[in-house]
Design a protein around this nucleic acid. Structure first.
Lengths: 140, 140
DNA sequence: TTCTAAATGCAACATTGTTTCGTTTAGAGA
DNA sequence: TCTCTAAACGAAACAATGTTGCATTTAGAA
């Protein structure tokens, strides 16, 4: 599907209005693919993009199952486009993320699923995040 | 071993001076055991403990292998006392952490080791962090 | 006891994110 | 196509978390 079509489809599916900012931001995520983006990275790409609006856009996208958050070792949060299985308030992308200490990029390892582990019985598990870090292929 | 003895031993082992702040903070971690503490939690426990000094103390302890950082889903970082195997700049506690969404506590799951996973060959793995979240036993 | 490098405490700053509120705009309905 | 309203936006102010620079204090070696 063409980019503009995918953008339209995703926003419609999430019951979101087609605003300039949303189209702009969503395009970035679609183009980034499995690379997770921080708010700052998106912000500096578009000079006249309001910081606050951007934060709200990210939050909205996350709630609609369009993007998912990847906990970053550095503390700042990054986001990447979801797989098709995600929907409103129901993220299905239980894959690991890799953080490269050199280029500071976070990528989704879509094929590395988080294994199920035996927890002590009194813990009720809801989510799990696995962050691997080291040096990525491009930086070696 | 008694608490004061352990504090002395740990600081000596890390080549750190026995200062008031360090003894105070280390005592907190030893008493907390597998429960990870945030900077804020420690800060509010001691009214006249300087925020900046505390941050520096935490950093120093981490570098010396006395405490380790547990990436928190909420973004703020928490720390917990290391197992005996850790040493300067060489943390050996590759266990998962559990974050309770109700009480907002993070605990070390010392028995839940992070499994080794097959990464694409061009990734050079150095660290891994596994954060499980849900509701802990005490909150159910 | 003296002395110095290490540790502390304060001020100022940086980053990341939220809240409030007035203004603009998407898009549903006439 | 035009009107209208709820949704989205933009600006200011604030909050949480953490860092840097620098002058002062202190642990502990000599």
């Amino acid at each position: 599907m063409e980019l503009d079509q995918r953008i339209k489809h995703l926003l419609k599916h999430g019951n979101l209005r087609m605003t300039t900012v949303r189209k702009l931001v969503l395009k970035e995520f679609l183009e980034a693919g499995s690379i997770a983006l921080s708010s700052y990275e998106i912000e500096k790409k578009f000079e006249d993009l309001d910081r606050i609006t951007l934060y709200r856009t990210l939050k909205t996208f996350e709630e609609c199952g369009i993007i998912h958050q990847a906990v970053d070792v550095s503390g700042r949060s990054k986001y990447a486009i979801c797989s098709a299985d995600c929907s409103n308030h129901n993220h299905e992308d239980h894959h690991a993320h890799f953080y490269c200490k050199k280029c500071e990029r976070t990528v989704c390892l879509d094929d590395v699923k988080i294994p199920t582990l035996n927890l002590p019985t009194d813990f009720q598990l809801e989510d799990s995040q696995l962050v691997l870090s080291g040096v990525c292929g491009a930086c070696q």
